[in-house]
């Protein structure tokens, strides 16, 4: 008896509003929304690699322009690092499991978790692939400027680069602070956003698996 009553209450709960579709416009609306969302995703994917794309011509030009051999090598290695970063972002974007919400609830949770763990891994290791390599290369770049001293260089860039020791020290400290900030931002995103979401997914998965 109670069971039937509950089902009646439940079925009646949709009777507070009448839902009407304007079928002639629905498909246009849905297509417009999909295009809007895809545009946002394309922009986001592009934004992720734009930093590395900017680095390519700048350090390519520096390698061409600056005559000091170690500085040149550091510039070229920075270009290689930027290419690696683009490759890494692209492969993460490709690996991301495309959402398929018509999958069973349990499998959908598993897919969500896989994507979240991928993001977790990417952000949590940012120090080793995004921060330290260019930091070391930038230090090599800066500290090798002007060496060997027998190389004469009077290019227009010379006024914009830290050529003396005090400027080099300043640059080294500023870059270290900036990089520490990037690491902190990413660790914070992992701690404040990703960890709670992963924990939530795991909690629901445990609830589903349990028989208690």
């Amino acid at each position: 008896m109670l069971e039937k009553e509950l089902k009646d209450i439940w079925k009646g709960s949709s009777e507070i509003e009448r839902i009407k579709f304007d079928l002639s416009r629905l498909m246009i609306d849905l297509n417009a929304r999909m295009n809007r969302i895809e545009k946002v995703i394309r922009k986001r994917d592009f934004r992720e690699i734009v930093g590395a794309l900017i680095v390519l011509p700048i350090f390519g030009y520096l390698a061409y322009e600056i005559p000091y051999p170690i500085t040149r090598i550091a510039s070229l290695l920075t270009v290689v690092w930027a290419l690696y970063v683009i490759y890494k972002f692209r492969s993460v974007q490709k690996r991301r499991i495309r959402e398929n919400l018509s999958l069973p609830f349990k499998q959908q949770l598993e897919n969500q978790k896989t994507n979240m763990l991928d993001q977790h891994q990417l952000l949590n290791t940012v120090l080793y692939w995004y921060v330290l390599p260019p930091y070391i290369l930038n230090l090599v770049f800066v500290w090798s400027l002007g060496y060997p001293s027998n190389i004469e260089w009077s290019g227009s860039l010379i006024n914009h680069l830290p050529m003396d020791t005090s400027n080099k020290i300043g640059f080294t400290i500023a870059l270290a602070v900036f990089n520490a900030f990037i690491v902190w931002l990413n660790k914070r995103a992992v701690k404040k956003t990703l960890n709670p979401l992963i924990a939530d997914i795991e909690r629901v998965q445990q609830q589903l698996d349990s028989t208690d």
Binding site: I16, R18, I19, R25
Partner: peptide, 8 residues
């Protein structure tokens, strides 16, 4: 989506 309307 403007094409879906909810009327009390």
């Amino acid at each position: 989506l403007e094409s879906i309307q909810f009327m009390p």
